[in-house]
Amino acid sequence: MVEFLGYAARKVGRNWLWVEVNEGETLRDVFLKYLGLRLENEVVEALMNAFMRGEVRVAVNGRVVGSLDAKLNDGDKILVFPIAAGGDTCFEKMF
């Protein structure tokens, strides 16, 4: 399950998405391969760039990860969130 918070959720247009990942796949795969199929490229790219700049964080099962190379397991919960949620302008600046 991928959960989005705050302006990330607003931009994605939903709070949750369920994706199926294969053994050994990473967060990068989730963004590029799976979210890319369901969301506009512009949104996925903006999320990934914001992650690189540290403005958006990603946690797997509640633990914040430092890289999109983190490997995933079946049933993992992924949270995509701004450092603090609320407001729109920071996200708008990403585009």
Binding site: G54, E55, A59, G62, F81, A85, G86, G87, C90
Partner: peptide, 21 residues
């Protein structure tokens, strides 16, 4: 990156996020 969140919702911007963390 914190200004907008704190301005729009104050500390309410982190309640759910902190629960999940």
């Amino acid at each position: 990156p914190l200004f907008d969140a704190f301005h729009s919702l104050g500390t309410n911007s982190v309640v759910y996020q902190f629960y999940t963390l």
